[in-house]
Design a protein around this nucleic acid. Structure first.
Lengths: 148, 148
DNA sequence: TTTGCTGCAAATGCTTTGCATGTAG
DNA sequence: CTACATGCAAAGCATTTGCAGCAAA
């Protein structure tokens, strides 16, 4: 399980690669190298941060993973399960959700065309405050502001 | 000229600040710290890279400038002349153009709402190939592909 | 004169690389 | 057995910070 796509990508099936692929699948599809590294350490694996980066970079080259540069310095790696989508992320709790809006996609194509570009790629990120009960944003607000 | 907005921002009017503000206005509204630094050096000014970063960071805090994280590691600083817009940039020649599509904006708000977010900000970047005569992309294609 | 700015050097944080050892195929 | 992976230490970048000297107000 997982070894198939590794071989397919021309990569040897090794423990770090299996572990990391599994984490992206089972724990979260959006992870930083640092978080992966810590999670591995926590589960007793002694895998170096450079190895984590190397594996992720190879995954990226193989199309298994996409690298994102959200605000905050660290790269976020996302399991690429095909199917384009954009992201919305919460400024308070860091939660990342995916969405795809065909209207926006179409309008982007039109815009590029209008400006004389052949569109190759795009990145759309929405930043906001999510309305989850467990989001620190809500906690902070407690009784401070009347509901607008 | 320029000293007004500096004072207004609570910043002393100094040579590095004036120079950098002027460059963003007269040379290009999109510049990296490194490019600014080199341009200053070329024009005989001995201003350190750290100072360039400090000035840009202060400008950012004062709302005179926006910092962008396009692909490629380096931050791009943009003169903020009010008025929201997004960017399209050419993968071949690096050209950056601005645009604003009210349909896309509206759809973003709806999307955020639908997902239970209070939208605060967003970043949309289109990457493509521009059709300029002087763009390296065209040069490369010479006689290779029939026009689609 | 006082507060805030600059230059330089050094530190930081994220990511990559070099190299000797180890291991999958 | 051979080619490729890993671990560790060290290097690389972009960016920030500390501090002594300087300059704007």
């Amino acid at each position: 399980m997982g070894s198939k796509e590794l071989k397919q990508a021309g990569l040897k099936v090794t423990l770090p690669r299996m572990k990391i692929l599994k984490m992206l699948r089972q724990d979260s599809p959006h992870l930083t190298a640092e978080v992966i590294h810590r999670m591995l350490a926590d589960s007793g694996e002694d895998i170096g941060l450079p190895t984590v980066y190397r594996v992720l970079t190879q995954f990226e080259a193989a199309g298994l993973v996409k690298r994102h540069h959200f605000e905050g310095g660290q790269s976020v790696f996302e399991l690429d399960q095909g199917g384009h989508h954009d992201h919305i992320l919460c400024l308070d709790c860091g939660r990342i959700e995916e969405f795809c809006d065909e209207d926006i996609e179409r309008r982007q194509r039109l815009t590029a065309e209008r400006l004389g570009f052949e569109l190759a790629e795009h990145r759309l990120i929405l930043y906001g405050h999510c309305i989850r009960i467990d989001c620190p944003h809500r906690t902070t607000l407690e009784g401070e502001e009347p509901p607008h």
